[in-house]
């Protein structure tokens, strides 16, 4: 059995996490790519000098607004937002995202792995997941808002629903991508069903599943914000809704900027963590090709 584990976990870590991080940093600090950001800001600046500030506020105003509103935005309290700053609302959104991704991932991964092993289960779950995956969020959200009321529960349920579908698909694909040779080899060595799952299936599928988790996490921010936009008392979505009602384009763009930045940072951390956690993947995939 140890042989199989060793095969799957293939070789020690060749790429040091630190070096990986350094590569990532170098790529992020590529002068040309940074210049792209500057050009983007300049175009925005140019457009905003032509159009009125209500339509398109200049980038420095948006950044300044984000800076001041982050800790304290008294204007929000006039519209009935419980915590009149972006920080607390962002935290609320983040909490919901974390809870939803954790629950959704657990359901999706288990269902995906089981369905890849048993064709009968797959035949039963697949049509449900495929149909559920095509339902646009704006169709599903109103039902949840009426069934569960305006609050944390309906937003979290909505995100769980989507994370589950994504991870189901990823886990299923990951498990069917595992070369049958591994399992045959393990069986010849007398591995039990449980050992195959624990020592072979899980290590072999983790890299791909983590990739799916990263995609789900990136999408979850948007979904959470939208479901808060449709009905919530707190969160970034609520802030956006309030600012939209006040036709405050500067505030809207500042909130969107914050959401985008947080999503990028979380994604970068997740990407780094995935590479670190699944560092045996390099050996596995090179063997497969």
């Amino acid at each position: 059995m140890t042989t199989v584990t060793a095969t799957v976990k293939a070789a020690p870590r060749r790429v040091r996490p630190l070096r990986l991080f350094a590569y990532g940093l170098a790529a992020a600090l590529d002068p040309l790519r940074l210049a792209g950001l500057v050009v983007f800001a300049l175009i925005w600046e140019g457009l905003s000098s032509v159009l009125s500030t209500i339509i398109l506020p200049p980038p420095q105003n948006v950044v300044a607004r984000l800076w001041t509103d982050f800790l304290d935005a008294p204007s929000l309290s006039y519209y009935g937002v419980a915590n009149p700053n972006l920080y607390a609302n962002l935290l609320y959104t983040a909490e919901n995202v974390v809870i939803a991704v954790a629950i959704g991932a657990a359901i999706g991964i288990v269902a995906g792995l089981v369905s890849a092993r048993f064709s009968l289960v797959r035949a039963i779950i697949n049509p449900v997941m495929m149909t559920a995956g095509t339902v646009p969020i704006l169709i599903a959200a109103p039902f949840l808002l009426i069934w569960f009321g305006v609050g944390r529960l309906s937003a979290v349920c909505l995100v769980i629903f989507y994370v589950t579908v994504i991870l189901y698909l990823f886990a299923q694909r990951a498990a069917s991508n595992v070369s049958p040779i591994y399992e045959e080899f393990a069986r010849t060595l007398g591995a039990s069903q449980r050992q195959i799952v624990v020592d072979l299936l899980i290590p072999a599928t983790v890299p791909e599943i983590l990739g799916g988790l990263r995609i789900a996490l990136a999408g979850a921010w948007g979904l959470e914000a939208v479901s808060e936009l449709l009905g919530s008392q707190e969160g970034m979505g609520k802030v956006l809704e309030v600012l939209a009602g006040a036709t405050d384009s500067e505030g809207i763009m500042a909130s969107l900027l914050l959401l985008g930045l947080v999503a990028i940072i979380v994604d970068a951390i997740a990407g780094w963590a995935v590479k670190r956690l699944a560092s045996w993947n390099a050996g596995l995939s090179s063997e497969r090709n």
Binding site: W221, G222, A225, V226, G237, L240, L256, L259, A263
Partner: peptide
């Protein structure tokens, strides 16, 4: 990365 549907208010504006 900007959530598309959260940009609806902006487009409306």
């Amino acid at each position: 990365t900007l959530p598309l549907l959260a940009m609806v208010p902006l487009f409306q504006l």
